[in-house]
Design a binder for these strands. Structure first.
Lengths: 114, 114
DNA sequence: ATTTATACTATCATTTTTGATAGTTATTGT
DNA sequence: ACAATAACTATCAAAAATGATAGTATAAAT
């Protein structure tokens, strides 16, 4: 039994999935590998996610210590940048391996869109 | 846009997550790395999953071509073995990387259970 | 004065995922 | 004769994840 941030997992693999699982978290992290992005920049990279969901995912990634949020202004319109923490950066090889396999799978058994 | 088995994904990372995502799939795959396992052997490795869920997950993994199901008997009590397909085996490095990070995370920011 | 922009939050609804529990078939062991 | 076993499925329920839409604050640009 593994515990992380108060949550329990039956397997080391499910612990990781508890943190990066779901429809959007790996996509967020994948885009943050290159460097910090502002909220709206992330939205442009992921046009099909709703604002609510993007917000929620960023917040839990922050709570888990994977992503950090830096605010540059004190009054609206805000400037906020999201980036990987040092701990979050240790996930990069995992994310890359997940992303690479996605490409491989499409090349072999999937289809590339036009 | 990426398509795999009729489903569309906005990112190569989310495609992979569409296949191995969820609470249990990586755990199943992690245990199948060592070799084939029977249904009840899997259950023993994962005592907290319900039968229904284990069944469903195995079925979708099979449909996605990741796991194969081999039946050895024709009448009950059945003998059924689950194993990784060749295509499924290409996921092994991904699963290992996910599992290893889980161990790393616990060692650094989580807690090991007693 | 009005619009535009940023980074959200709030509310409500829907979909997806997971769980709880009981039942099925036919064979082997007691 | 009866219980145990294997690998499930069926039904119902609950929880979790995601989506749709509208609204907020304030400053700068038009």
């Amino acid at each position: 039994m593994y515990t992380f941030k108060g949550k329990e997992y039956p397997c080391c693999a499910s612990l990781t999935m508890g943190i990066i699982g779901g429809k959007w978290k790996t996509v967020i992290l994948y885009h943050l590998i290159e460097g910090p992005l502002r909220y709206n920049e992330l939205r442009k990279e992921m046009p099909t996610v709703t604002e609510r969901t993007l917000s929620l995912q960023l917040k839990t990634l922050e709570e888990d210590g994977i992503v950090k949020r830096k605010v540059y202004t004190s009054k609206p319109p805000l400037k906020v940048e999201y980036s990987l923490t040092d701990f979050g950066k240790t996930l990069i090889p995992v994310i890359i391996s997940i992303a690479d396999w996605g490409v491989y799978a499409v090349e072999n058994k999937g289809e590339l869109a036009v």
